[in-house]
Amino acid sequence: MTSTALTPGLGSPEPTGPHRSAPAEERRRSQQKARRRNVRSALLFLSPWLLGFVVFTAWPMIYSAYLSLTDYDVINDPEFVGLENYAEMASDPKILLALGNTAFFTLVQVPLYVIVSLALALLLDRAGRAAGFFRTVFFLPKMTPPVAVGVLFLLLFNGQNGLVNTVLGWFGIAGPAWTTDPAWVKPGLIFMSLWTVGSSVIILLAALRNVPETLYESAKLDGAGFWRTSTSVTLPMISPALFFIIIVNTIAGLQTFDEAYTAFFGSGNTTYSNDAALFYVIYLFQQAFEFLHMGYASAMAWGLFLVIMIVTAIQLIVSRRLVYYEGEK
């Protein structure tokens, strides 16, 4: 957009210039030596990540795959059980429940989240000088720790005297018991999650502002109305950002944990926990760290990985048809 560095960046191809007067053999050897030194320096800079990758990613993946084939409670040695954990998952009613809850949450929350953030971004885009102020206002909730969001959910959506039902009451609507009625717990959590759309609003607003002015001008010259301009100019131009938001939020939705766990689970909440809020990662966490079924939880983790891969792959395939990338031909 602005600043184009005048000098070639680090990303530009290596400047090639013929070396003068060095005999070929000697030159080759010194180049080789330089290259080896170069690789050694590179490895030195990469070493933190390489080490971390081996210790905290590669080995844990292998070990997790192994654990998923065992019974392991941390105290006794893992006992190999083959595919038993996976078979158990298929017949565990709570897995089905947690998958259903998670699917419901993701399928409803992600579209709402995208619509709300797009609406807010469009409003900001035509707000002129007030945009900066309202952008801050919409982003601020994103800074709230999820635990506090969970607390706010319990308070504001309280069935008897919560703020939400009080406001609904003004319009003659008797609000449901959001925090206790199994039918309304997930919708309540979804509404609460819309409070933290801030980062998506910023991303979409930046995308809207990146649409070149000339496109709007030529659309106008061609006699395109508001609707035509929106569908033929705005939407294609911001589709990469929209797609990005959908992917990131789908992945996050499938792993939702903090708010629902704060509100309904944990040591003090055994009498209060609500099956309607048992999301997949919450159940996984309980299996691993409350019941110490490390083998079973590892199998669950691989199940989650598989689901995320499949969902993301589908989204990528669909996006090829729908997302417009400016630089591509």
Binding site: T57, M61, S64, Q255, V281, A301, F305, I308
Partner: peptide
């Protein structure tokens, strides 16, 4: 590695620290 859900490595990493 950004695509990998935290849940997959969570347990072995816990065992390392343990």
């Amino acid at each position: 590695t950004m695509m990998l859900p935290g849940a997959v490595t969570m347990i072995p990493v816990f065992l390392i620290w343990n």
